[in-house]
Design a binder for these strands. Structure first.
Lengths: 229, 229
DNA sequence: GGATGTGAAGTAGTTCACAGCC
DNA sequence: GGCTGTGAACTACTTCACATCC
């Protein structure tokens, strides 16, 4: 039994947000042919403390070696397992404006099991055109069965789009519209709001937290490195 | 002395992230001619508990009235004050691809004191073209004095861009590249990483947290409403 | 009466410090 | 010797419950 805990116990929310960062670091080392890394090195690259890294990774079961750090391959695999990257996730994107295009054309967005299933828009100019290898469909038609729905429409349309996606049995929503949406129990909604991120930054610049003292900021629970130059 | 505490004491990070949401709600009510709101109503619209709303707002000084809730105008003003919206923030955007365009053309991004100061790119095809009323400049030229730098370049270029911005005396960075960057002490960095957000959602869909039980998700510290239909 | 503002309790996350194992 | 993994302490945030004031 090489896998002491196949179903890793529930991970904390901040830990879940940091795991993709650790995985990205692991991939980078693999690409450069490095096969061992220790918690201190991960910590510096991820901008967190070494203790946090070890606590996070300990949650995935025993995967390090005392004395020598972590095997980069094992690290990569176990994080992928914990985050559910062994499954496929069909993603539909609603709203093919600049943002929707940026997402589906990005090399970094649809990775690790996520795959584009369909695109939707309301604009007749856009419907029927091909974007990222998919023909954009009309939103008022039937919605493809999928795992995740990405909402890139204006705030005023966000709730309606969310309702349609939920009706199509999609239980995971990633909402880029600056609008809190309400969904039935059992649907996971995650918000990304550019404007709020900018306002948080403005707050810190205005109060000492940024330019003065130890301007340590958090986003996704990730502390910025802030090493002295 | 109508303002008992002109300099509101330090606000917690989750509170700061929620204030813009409350402010958006206040603006919506003003637009509809409503002038009073109570913590319970804010709570429902923001997807948090009423206690959290009251605790957050109490941090801005005394601004509600016991018995009757909050004056929407006062609420709006005080939040703006607390977040530093009375100042102007010059924003430069580096990387005018789909994402950069989506940001500067969005009606929701550059608001509340934030104003576009300049655009930069490396692509000779893009440099010289006009986007959102600004001519895109070459990145290797001098960087405009500004308050905030927005990084919309590929991960491989992010650290270099960050260095240039810091050298131009910009102490607030909003980084959309999937790359942890290192900056001198005193520079505030905030990360927005689409791919991580999607992976968090994938985790929750794969484990019970989403589709099963009380799928309460957090992003920006904002809980989704999850009211039963 | 009714909703705010807040001590006190509870819960979650991080950091310390070191035992345990390679 | 060195680095992981973790109990224990600490810090941060949320929730409860209610005194306070309009």
């Amino acid at each position: 039994m090489a896998t002491p805990r196949l179903r890793p116990r529930k991970l904390s929310e901040p830990t879940i947000a940091r795991l993709p960062v650790y995985q990205r670091i692991a991939e980078g080392w693999l690409a450069r042919g490095q096969h061992r890394i220790d918690s201190q090195q991960i910590a510096e690259l991820a901008g967190v403390t070494a203790t946090t890294v070890r606590r996070d990774l300990a949650g995935l079961g025993t995967l390090g070696t005392r004395g020598a750090g972590y095997d980069v391959n094992v690290l990569n695999d176990r994080i992928g397992e914990a985050l559910g990257h062994d499954r496929k996730y069909d993603v539909v994107v609603v709203g093919i404006g600049n943002l929707g295009r940026a997402l589906v054309n990005s090399a970094n967005f649809l990775i690790r099991g996520a795959q584009l299933a369909a695109l939707y828009d309301v604009d007749p100019e856009v419907v029927g055109t091909e974007v990222a290898g998919h023909v954009v469909r009309a939103l008022d038609g039937p919605i493809e069965t999928a795992t995740v729905g990405v909402i890139c429409v204006p705030a005023s349309a966000a709730q309606d789009v969310a309702d349609r996606l939920v009706a199509a049995d999609i239980h995971g929503l990633l909402n880029f519209a600056p609008q809190v949406i309400s969904t039935p129990l059992g649907t996971a909604v995650h918000y990304v709001d550019f404007s709020i991120e900018l306002q948080i930054l403005m707050y810190h610049l205005n109060n000492g937290t940024g330019p003065l003292g130890g301007g340590l900021l958090h986003s996704l629970g990730i502390a910025s490195p802030l090493r002295g130059t």
